[in-house]
Amino acid sequence: MPSLARKTIAVTLLTAGSFACYWTYLTVNQERLLFDARRRPPRDLPDGIVAYSHTVPGGLFRGYVYHADHVGVRDLLFYLPGRGEDVLDTLQFVKWLPAGMGFATFDYRGLGHSDGMPSEAAAVADASQFLLHIRRAFPGVRVHVVGRSLGTGVAIQLADLQDFESLQLITPYDSLLEIVGKRFPLVPLRQLMRHHFDSISHCKKVVQSTKVLLAESDDVVPHACSERLIAAWPGPVALQTIAGTDHFSIVERPETWHALCEFARQVPHHPPERVRKTPPEDHTETGVPLPLPAAR
């Protein structure tokens, strides 16, 4: 065999092997990469916040509730965080909530102080079970689901499992598969990715009043992705762009929180005949304040 042919074959095999190793790495670690899964050291909860938990494979799922005393609470924002978001930091922004507005959020499995392995199905199931707890703990309080970035895909699927007063999406995408595909153009993601977060398909069943908040500049979720989702929406969508923000800073601005609360309070009350959907329950809930775990 000529020397050039042998070199060509060797380079081809080396390139193919490199791609195979890279694809294998992405496949094996995709949950950690997609969710930016990282545990965080134990911290004291901010004032006015109490903890919630239910059991999951590998330990406990943990959530956090503001205004758990229920005093004067008429509406509550149920916040589904973005990729790798430290929700204990996000809780500092409850200072911008008006009187009578409660707040609840959580760590996805494997993130923050929640145990277990993150996944699309687990995120939806945990959010649904926590929302059931909120409904029981806050009878008569109107719940408004807010998803941010990665959490918008969870929020849209949650709308098909349970009824709530409104749905608000901060920097939403049409499909996570499309977002990731732009970053990894040479990877067969449709075959390798187990978590597609196909919001453009799931949104067709949404009946809740909906608002979308966009950052003025967004290099993570391009406006075109959000616009494709809005175009596929089955009903009207209120749209607002928060000036001077990007994908990360939008949640740090008081204008964002004021916009969320204003829309929530303007949503009409549901008519009494509207029936709430009931999702399957597959975990054991404790729903009581618990100390955060020691770092592992």
Score class of each variant (00 low, 15 high):
R253L: 06
G63I: 03
H133F: 06
L290Y: 08
L77P: 03
R194H: 10
S166M: 12
V71D: 15
V221K: 00
G59M: 04
L167M: 08
E227Q: 14
A215V: 10
A68R: 00
P234L: 14
V288H: 07
V124E: 00
F19N: 06
P81W: 03
M101R: 10
V141N: 08
D160P: 12
D36L: 15
W257K: 15
R136P: 01
R274E: 00
L290P: 01
K205F: 15
L80S: 00
R183W: 11
G116K: 08
L177D: 01
G140H: 04
Q162F: 02
T286C: 09
L176T: 02
V28L: 11
R39S: 07
G102E: 03
N29L: 12
A215F: 01
P118C: 03
S18Q: 12
G72W: 13
T245K: 03
A20E: 03
L192C: 09
R32D: 07
A51T: 14
T152P: 00
C203R: 03
R6P: 10
E120Y: 10
T256L: 03
E255M: 11
L150R: 02
A137W: 00
S149T: 05
M101G: 07
G116W: 06
L177I: 05
P293C: 07
V50C: 09
A238C: 10
V56P: 00
